[in-house]
């Protein structure tokens, strides 16, 4: 279980890198991250985590509702 959590975390991490890289980096005339790109990556990370949290909260509520309805 613990191992699985670690794996899930690492997968989430690599997905986040992929997603933010793809959204934020479109200029390959330089190999260094511009300050604009860096800000985009930070916002992207921040927003993605808040998004996941909110989805998680709603998911849990819906699941609980569904459970309740099922046991009626």
């Amino acid at each position: 279980i613990e191992k699985k959590q670690m794996q899930d975390f690492l997968r989430m991490y690599s997905n986040l890198v992929e997603r933010c890289f793809n959204s934020c980096c479109n200029d390959f005339t330089s190999k260094a991250l511009s300050s604009k790109e860096e800000q985009c990556v930070l916002n992207c990370t921040d927003k993605f985590l808040k998004h996941s949290e909110r989805v998680g909260a709603r998911f849990a509520e819906q699941n609980a509702d569904a459970m309740g309805a099922g046991s009626k």
Partner: peptide, 9 residues
């Protein structure tokens, strides 16, 4: 850049 993004994240 991908490595830099990895580091920032």
């Amino acid at each position: 850049k991908f490595f830099e993004v990895n580091k920032k994240v």
